[in-house]
Design a protein around this nucleic acid. Structure first.
Lengths: 143, 143
DNA sequence: AATCATGTAACAATAAAAGTATCATGAATT
DNA sequence: AATTCATGATACTTTTATTGTTACATGATT
């Protein structure tokens, strides 16, 4: 599989939407992400279902933010796009009755769980608003 | 992609080898893992190149442990089998010049790096010998 | 010399995100 | 009311890396 870049892409889009008045079309977003409008709709659908964005059809339609970015965390976005599998590595399950396999899997599972918990904790601690402020700070540095 | 179960599989094999006198053939290992002997050779090749196991051809040949399991960590095995990519999620790189993308990617990258460091630290802290003792303990509990 | 086991190469199967084409639906403009 | 614009939904294909499989060469033991 390729990298799952849905989280990264949606963060990118949300920050752009945050500093843009009015709706943005899937086509415009696709151009920003260098991808296809269908891919955009498919991924944004998760955010819409979670209530983080809204979409309007027809003339002047497109996507709009529908929540407080101060309250929206990276973890929220991660989950909204499918909360996909985090790790490439995983257990084998050839012989669930094999005590050796059980010991191995528990050890690996423990480590992965701990890392996952840390990851979710960190993602949950960053809001989209903070990211947006980080962007502002970076721009000021460049002026 | 499926789960990468190479680490898990090799740990499984090493523990079995640790409590088995004499070499074990790829066929026997394949049976334990419910897979193919070629897959076994392919994966074990990494361990052999790292000097953790040895292989002998011909009659009575097969695979043997060639190191001190007390000194062999899960991280060593992870790296020996290819030290594969850990995370499914990753960054997009549509517009390296886009400051928004940069801010997003840095934030995601920071979180992933921290989780990766934790993962490697934990994997590095567990030796195969410890796993083996964990297996012993489990067996005693069942008697 | 025959057999056994690894080593290697080449290719198919698998899984999940991403890319693409197409058509239906609904809203705004004319 | 008709046209246009934009999303919604479906049904593919492409991509990428592990895994599975077949086939054959190489070397060691009997």
């Amino acid at each position: 599989m390729r990298n799952d870049s849905r989280l990264s892409r949606m963060l990118h889009v949300l920050l752009h939407m945050a500093r843009h008045d009015g709706p943005i079309t899937s086509e415009a977003i696709a151009a920003m992400l260098r991808t296809n409008a269908v891919v955009v709709r498919r991924t944004m659908a998760g955010l819409r279902d979670a209530g983080y964005v809204r979409s309007e059809k027809g003339h002047g339609g497109g996507w709009m933010i529908a929540c407080d970015l101060e309250q929206l965390s990276l973890l929220d976005v991660h989950r909204a796009v499918g909360g996909p599998r985090l790790f490439v590595i995983g257990n084998e399950e050839a012989n669930p009755d094999c005590a050796v396999e059980q010991v191995v899997n528990e050890a690996v599972e423990d480590v992965l769980s701990e890392a996952e918990a840390l990851l979710e904790k960190r993602l949950g601690a960053i809001s989209l608003a903070e990211l947006s402020r980080g962007f502002d700070a970076r721009c000021e540095g460049k002026i």
